[in-house]
Structures are given as C-alpha cells and as structure tokens.
Computed example of a mutant assay.
Amino acid sequence: MVLVHGTGGVSLFALQLVKARDCRVAITYKDNAKLARARELGADFAFNYATQPT
C-alpha cells in the first residue's frame, strides 16, 4: 500500500508507477473532481482531506 498526496503531475506519475508494480494506492487531495480523475487512473482509495474527519 502506498499513500500519494496531491493530484499534480508527479503524484499522478507515482500513482501509475505504483499501480504498474501491482500495489494498492491511496491518494489524498482537497478537490473531489481531481480525486475522481485519480480513481480513473487506478487509485484504490481517494480521500478528500478537507471534508472527511480525521
């Protein structure tokens, strides 16, 4: 399991690289639309840290 923060170019590259290694990926960001894009790219878990309680 790998945790990736953000939805910028480096973060999305890390997401794709980790998925290619057959690992599960959790990604965090504050924008639901960008989290949806990360899910399309293969993120197993997506958390909006601005709206979900800790």
Rank of each mutant, 00 (worst) to 15 (best):
G9K: 15
F13K: 12
S11C: 08
A46E: 04
K19D: 04
A50I: 12
P53M: 14
T54S: 14
K19T: 04
G6D: 06
V2Y: 07
R39L: 05
A33M: 09
L35D: 04
D44T: 08
A26W: 00
T51G: 09
T54I: 12
V4C: 00
T28S: 07
F45A: 04
R21E: 06
D31L: 07
I27Q: 04
L12V: 09
A46Q: 01
A14V: 07
R37K: 13
Y29H: 06
E40M: 09
Y49V: 14
A20E: 15
L17M: 13
Q52H: 15
Q16K: 07
K30E: 03
C23V: 09
V4S: 02
G8Y: 05
A38P: 01
L35K: 06
T28M: 00
V4H: 00
I27S: 00
T54G: 14
L41W: 03
A20K: 15
Q52I: 12
H5Q: 15
C23D: 12
S11A: 06
A38E: 01
R24N: 11
M1W: 11
G42Y: 02
R21Q: 05
I27F: 02
R21P: 01
Y49S: 11
V4G: 01
Q16W: 00
A14R: 03
F47L: 13
K19I: 01
V25S: 04
